[in-house]
Simulated scan of single mutants.
Amino acid sequence: MSNTLSNVESPCVRNCCLDDKDMCLGCFRMLDEILIWGTASSQQQLDIVKAISVRKLIKAKSELR
């Protein structure tokens, strides 16, 4: 893991609440992703942001049912 500064903006929206699977209902990160964010490399952060996008889509689709 890298301690270098990253240009990837944190997805945190300051609305932290974990569901039963340890996913934040505010930013859609998993607890382990939240914990490593500050020391993650830029590539790891980008991977997390991509995973967040997928989770948001899944959540939106499930709410339409």
Rank of each mutant, 00 (worst) to 15 (best):
K56H: 08
I48R: 07
C24P: 07
L64V: 14
K61E: 12
R55L: 07
N3L: 12
N3A: 00
R29E: 03
S62I: 04
G26V: 09
A51Y: 00
L46Y: 08
E9G: 00
V49D: 03
A40P: 09
R29L: 03
I58T: 11
I58V: 15
K50Y: 07
R14K: 11
L5R: 12
I36H: 03
K56I: 15
Q44E: 15
D47Y: 05
L5N: 13
S62E: 09
L18D: 09
T4F: 10
M23D: 00
S53T: 14
M30K: 09
M23S: 02
S2E: 12
K61G: 02
W37G: 02
R65L: 07
S6R: 11
K59Q: 07
C27L: 06
T4I: 10
E63D: 14
E63F: 08
C17H: 10
S10T: 10
Q45L: 05
I36F: 08
R14N: 12
D20W: 05
L25T: 15
F28M: 02
I58R: 13
L25E: 15
V49Y: 01
I58E: 13
D47F: 05
C12Y: 13
L57S: 12
I48S: 09
V13D: 01
V54W: 10
Q45H: 08
I36K: 13
L31F: 10
T39D: 08
S42E: 14
K59H: 14
E33N: 02
R65H: 03
D32Y: 13
Q44G: 00
D22T: 01
A51L: 11
D19W: 06
L57Y: 04
C27G: 05
E63T: 06
C24K: 08
N7G: 11
G38F: 04
P11C: 02
E9Q: 12
C12L: 10
R55I: 01
S2V: 01
I36Y: 04
P11Y: 04
A60R: 14
A51Q: 14
E9V: 13
P11L: 04
I36T: 06
D20H: 06
V54M: 05
S6T: 15
M30H: 09
F28Q: 00
G26N: 08
I36R: 14
L35H: 07
R55C: 04
A40V: 06
I48N: 08
S62K: 13
N7W: 10
E63L: 14
C24N: 05
A60V: 10
S42D: 12
D22M: 12
C24G: 09
